[in-house]
Write a protein that binds this DNA or RNA. Structure first.
Length: 273
DNA sequence: CCATGTACCTGAAGGC
DNA sequence: TGCCTTCAGGTACATG
């Protein structure tokens, strides 16, 4: 569900609410949700920073770290008072002042990891798509070395982190690149177009506090507003606003993929199946 | 290494 | 109304 813009929206709100708070415990509700991979005690630790890498939220504590991934339907709810009214609560982070962070997650895919060092989880995650580390130069270098198709490449989280199914399709549309295009065949010029498209799409989505399809809500329970800018996502059967072609949907990289057949053409010799 | 399928889960939506 | 199938903002893992 949430991709980088939704996670960043949650991170910012979380930061304003739980920074410098003292953790008293984490209460597991659904056992798989909370994964304790560090034997040091959580009790008494202070929340130092609320950071993010790709779709991971990183709570750096005095000695250890809590790393949260919302996966498809995860949602965080912060309350000063205990509140039993919500269904689907899978874990609760309790603070010493009596407030708590509730992890709500209908599909139970989300996770909270307690680790001694953030790298224990994040070692396999590539540079953040809105971070300084991810430059056009590094993008071009890894693109040319990959033999994946560009959609799978952008979704992998290994080369760039934060893009999911929506923003990958929106970025490829904006750049005029077909999702089956081989990463290595993207020219230096096209790579720059794609780089700028990704930054533009993600920055705008952060500005509008993410996109809400059905489940996503921020910490206040509010929906995002970015969905009104979708050009291809969920627009199959409707005309492209740029060229008028009908947006199509098919499966690429095992995911539903929306394409404008007029704006996103495949290279010669590359075929959809 | 890469593409594809399956598993993990639940609920909403569409077809009949 | 009800039953059945398909699909969903993600990722890990197994199989060709």
């Amino acid at each position: 569900m949430p991709e980088l813009p939704e996670v960043e929206t949650v991170r910012r709100e979380l930061q304003s609410m739980i920074i410098a708070k003292e953790v008293s415990s984490v209460q597991p509700v659904w056992m798989k949700t909370f994964q304790n991979q560090c034997h040091q005690t959580l009790r008494g630790q202070i929340v130092k920073t609320v950071a993010r890498l790709g779709k991971y939220i990183v709570l750096e504590l005095s000695e250890t770290a809590l790393i949260i991934h919302l996966r498809m339907t995860g949602q965080l709810i912060y309350r000063n008072q205990p509140h039993p009214e919500h269904d689907y609560i899978r874990a609760i982070v309790h603070f010493a002042d009596g407030s708590a962070l509730y992890f709500k997650d209908i599909r139970k895919f989300g996770r909270i990891y307690h680790v001694c060092h953030p790298e224990d989880i994040l070692y396999k995650v590539g540079p953040d798509a809105l971070g300084e580390e991810w430059s056009l130069t590094t993008f071009r270098n890894v693109l040319n070395k990959s033999s994946m198709n560009i959609k799978a490449f952008l979704l992998s989280q290994r080369y760039i982190s934060g893009l999911g199914n929506i923003y990958t399709d929106e970025s490829l549309y904006r750049a005029g690149i077909h999702p089956k295009e081989a990463a290595s065949r993207i020219t230096a010029e096209k790579a720059e177009t794609l780089y700028e498209a990704i930054r533009f799409i993600l920055n705008r989505a952060v500005k509008y506090m993410g996109s809400t399809i059905s489940d996503y809500r921020d910490l206040n329970g509010d929906s995002g507003q970015n969905q009104k800018f979708f050009e291809v996502y969920k627009r199959e059967g409707q005309p492209c606003r740029r060229c008028g072609s009908i947006i199509i949907k098919n499966i690429i990289a095992s995911r539903s993929t929306r394409i404008c057949p007029g704006c996103q053409t495949e290279s010669i010799g590359v075929h959809a199946s």
